[in-house]
Design a protein around this nucleic acid. Structure first.
Length: 594
DNA sequence: TGACTAAACGCCCTCTGCTGGATCGGG
DNA sequence: ACCCGATCCAGCAGAGGGCGTTTAGTCA
């Protein structure tokens, strides 16, 4: 057993977290700003050193035991009742604390892995690990002595374990590990041991997942003299694993100790490891950029030379790779969309697009703005949203760059990224669309289109119910809802001081600025010059009641031609507005009072 | 080991709907 | 002169399209 992934149900995890335990030393460090920063990974060597501080200076290199495959387990907290023993197809293990720092795990038959806690039995005190038999199984009556090498996973202290579940997090990046190892060169194990070490790591599940994953590494510790530092320990592990498993005749599996990657092929494993070590031996002589493989370098050079070998037979587009061409053809020509949404008719060319689309169903917004409560469904929207905050992160962009940063829109050159971005914004905000009839200019073509109609008098959006024409589709939509949609409930913005109603919030605000003055008060009391306006009821609207029955049988519930939103949308909007208006009016009143 | 391929990731773009400020114009 | 509905306009956000690049599986 080399690595085990365990998932924790979030509900139980929450309970555990609510224990408000003090973080273990080394697990968390309170930052100056009061925010706990998690120590997200301990390398095996660190763990060894941590539990044997004050040890002799012996260099220990972890090596895999015979079994190096990863095992996927499911971890959940559960009450310790006899019912659990009735579970089938599971290996039941009992885990007992032998002494501080050690627990005994014993397979007791089909069932669960328990971390026993003596007489202190409670919902949070037991951890059940259900083994997926196809991935891992212990031999009958097998007893594993788990030398807990990290304080936070001591089964003897459930609270500490809980804390480890709650506080440990994250896949370890090699760089971080290397930094830690550099920071802890003096840490050594006290003595050589042949015990198997169970290294528990906790990492969050996939984005959006409610699960927390645990990863355990079972290691044999070998004493060695100063191993070559250039060879990553994980590669050493893999080699060791290869040799041992080959000797055993078992199927080889190479596990990346930095991430969750596994592969049955050494070549794939080596190639993968290059992504962690940034080993890029292939240099582009044109821009000095380096690449991990010849293929990548070749593709890159093609971007310099403009070589695009894969040409589309249906258009003029050409691409560097065949994959790009296939995708292009699906988008533009074949319209093949293999990824279909199970909840609607949406289909996409790419899986990532479907994944993004599904968030519109689930409401998931994983990308949280650090400046406000806004959260977006994809990275770009968050990035776009950040523009609304004035230059926050901009400070990070002020470092001087020796390289010239060229404007993508003109020949301007900058040495500061911030300046470049600001400059490029002037291009993006250019009012490129200029009216030939007046001085009006705008940034969007649709705005110019609408503006031009104020000169030409064109009103292309015609109400099919009353033949009234509008320059904008939106205006037609508002008109229709207001005068021809029997189900539409218009939002009413009531003045909180005089209870006067308005059709628009902005109009109500405008009124509110004056309400409270003598005139407005008089108006509110009916003594002023303010006339009570008649509600504009066009003929069509007045006829509506008469024709209600007929319309209901013919048009009610059917979308209006050109109308894209269902009628219910208006209702929802109105309700939301009503809710918001109470707050808005209150805020406005407070502002005015001040 | 390199090449091919598919999948995944990431970025940027457009289109569209909604909202609210500013302004117009009728009463 | 004033009020207020109607209209114009700009900005933000939702959704999706398109493509560049990287990563991983597989095979010769």
């Amino acid at each position: 057993m080399a690595a085990t992934e365990i998932s924790v149900l979030s509900e139980q995890f929450t309970k555990i977290k609510e224990l408000e335990l003090m973080p273990e030393k080394g697990l968390q460090e309170e930052e100056e700003d009061g925010v706990y920063r998690e120590k997200d990974h301990w390398s095996p060597s660190e763990l060894e050193a941590e539990c044997t501080s004050g040890a002799e200076e012996l260099e220990l290199v972890p090596a895999f035991s015979e079994e190096t495959e990863k095992h996927i387990l499911t971890l959940q907290t559960a009450p310790f009742t006899s019912e659990a023993f009735k579970l089938q197809d599971l290996s039941l293990l009992s885990v007992q604390q032998q002494e501080e720092g050690q627990v005994m795990v014993q397979q007791a038959g089909p069932g669960l892995l328990w971390l026993e806690e003596g007489s202190q039995q409670s919902l949070q005190q037991y951890l059940a690990i259900s083994f997926q038999e196809e991935l891992y199984s212990l031999q009958e009556t097998e007893v594993l002595q788990l030398h807990l090498v990290e304080d936070n996973v001591m089964a003897s202290e459930e609270s500490k374990l809980a804390a480890s579940l709650a506080e440990s997090a994250g896949l370890t990046k090699l760089q971080e590990r290397q930094e830690k190892e550099q920071l802890l060169p003096e840490r050594r194990l006290a003595k050589r041991t042949e015990e198997q070490f169970l290294h528990l790591e906790v990492m969050p599940g996939d984005k959006g997942s409610d699960e927390i994953s645990l990863k355990t590494s079972n290691l044999n510790m070998e004493e060695q003299e100063d191993p070559p530092l250039a060879v990553p320990a994980n590669v050493e592990k893999a080699k060791s694993a290869k040799n041992q498993s080959q000797a055993k005749g078992a199927k080889r599996t190479f596990c990346c100790d930095v991430c969750m990657f596994t592969s049955s092929r050494m070549s794939s494993f080596h190639r993968h490891m290059k992504t962690h070590t940034n080993e890029k031996a292939h240099l582009c002589h044109l821009c000095l950029k380096t690449f991990g493989t010849v293929t990548l370098l070749r593709n890159h050079v093609n971007t310099h030379t403009g070589t695009r070998p894969y040409k589309c037979s249906d258009c003029n587009m050409a691409f560097v790779t065949s994959g790009e061409l296939v995708r292009h053809r699906r988008y533009k020509h074949t319209h093949e969309k293999p990824f279909k949404c199970s909840m609607c008719k949406y289909a996409s060319v790419e899986a990532s697009k479907l994944k993004r689309h599904v968030r519109s169903h689930t409401g998931e917004r994983p990308f949280q703005c650090c400046q406000c409560s806004y959260a977006s469904r994809d990275t770009y929207k968050l990035k776009r949203h950040m523009r609304t905050h004035s230059g926050v992160h901009i400070r990070n962009l002020h470092t001087h760059s020796a390289a010239e940063l060229k404007c993508r829109y003109c020949s301007a050159v900058f040495h500061e990224r911030f300046a470049l971005i600001q400059h490029q914004k002037t291009h993006k905000n250019e009012k490129r669309f200029k009216c030939e009839h007046c001085s009006y200019a705008c940034k969007q073509a649709r705005h110019m289109t609408a503006h031009i109609r104020t000169h030409t008098g064109e009103k292309p959006f015609t109400c099919l119910s009353c033949n009234k024409c509008f320059r904008q589709k939106q205006l037609l939509k508002i008109h229709f809802r207001k005068y021809h949609d029997a189900t539409f409930i218009p939002a009413v913005y009531k003045c909180p001081k005089c209870d006067k109603g308005f059709s628009r919030c902005s109009n109500m605000r405008r009124h509110l600025e004056k309400c409270g003055s003598g005139q407005a008060k008089a108006a509110a009391s009916g003594k002023g010059r303010i006339r009570k306006r008649k509600q504009p009821v066009p003929k069509e609207a007045s006829r509506r009641d008469e024709a209600a029955a007929e319309e209901a049988s013919t048009t009610k519930g059917e979308p209006f031609p050109g109308e894209t939103l269902p009628v219910a949308y208006g209702e929802t909007t109105a309700r939301v507005k009503d809710d918001m208006d109470e707050v808005t009016c209150e805020m406005l009143l407070n502002m005015l009072d001040k």
